[in-house]
Amino acid sequence: MSDAAKAPRERPLSPHLQVWRWHITMATSIAHRATGVALYVGALIAAAWAVCLASGPDAYAAFKAVMGSPIGLLVMFGLTVSFFYHLANGIRHLVWDAGHGYDLKSANASAVFVFAFTAAATLAIWLIAAMTGAI
Rank of each mutant, 00 (worst) to 15 (best):
R21M: 15
W49R: 05
A47K: 08
S2G: 15
P12I: 06
M1P: 10
L53H: 13
L17S: 14
G133H: 08
R33K: 06
W22Q: 15
K64W: 03
A54L: 10
G90N: 04
L39M: 14
A50L: 14
A47N: 13
F117W: 02
L17D: 14
V81Y: 01
W126Q: 06
L94C: 04
A59V: 03
A124S: 07
S110H: 06
M1N: 05
P57W: 03
G72S: 12
V81A: 01
A59Q: 09
G101L: 00
L17A: 14
H16L: 05
L94W: 08
R9W: 11
W20D: 11
D97L: 10
F117L: 07
A46I: 15
Y85N: 02
V95H: 03
V112G: 07
F113W: 01
F84I: 01
A109F: 10
L17H: 13
L53Y: 12
K64Y: 05
T118E: 01
R11V: 08
Y60K: 07
T132I: 11
I71T: 14
S55A: 13
G90Q: 05
L13K: 09
R92A: 01
R21E: 15
A34L: 15
M26Q: 13
S106Y: 03
D3E: 09
A88I: 02
A88C: 04
L127P: 01
A130C: 01
T132R: 07
Y40Q: 09
A129W: 02
M76A: 12
N89L: 00
W20M: 02
S14L: 08
R33S: 11
G78A: 08
H23D: 15
P12Y: 08
A88F: 02
L87E: 02
T35C: 14
T25K: 13
A109W: 08
A5P: 10
I125K: 05
A27P: 11
A54Y: 07
L44Q: 12
M67K: 07
I71F: 14
S110Q: 04
N108E: 12
A120H: 02
V75E: 05
E10Y: 13
H16Q: 10
Y102P: 00
A7C: 12
I135S: 03
H93P: 00
G101R: 03
F113H: 04
L17E: 14
L73K: 11
M67L: 13
G36F: 07
A88D: 01
M1K: 04
Y85T: 01
A54S: 06
A61S: 04
L74A: 12
N89K: 03
A116G: 00
C52W: 05
G68D: 04
M131C: 00
A48V: 15
G133Q: 06
V114K: 03
C52S: 14
H16E: 10
P57S: 06
A134D: 09
P12A: 08
L87G: 01
F63G: 05
A5F: 14
H23K: 14
G42S: 13
A111W: 09
A38M: 14
A34F: 11
I45H: 07
A47E: 10
I125R: 06
G99M: 06
K6I: 12
V95I: 12
L104V: 06
V37A: 13
T25V: 14
A7W: 14
G72N: 10
G42D: 08
G101D: 02
I45D: 09
T132W: 07
N108D: 11
M67A: 13
A27V: 15
I128H: 02
I24A: 05
A88S: 00
N108V: 11
G133I: 08
M26H: 11
T122G: 05
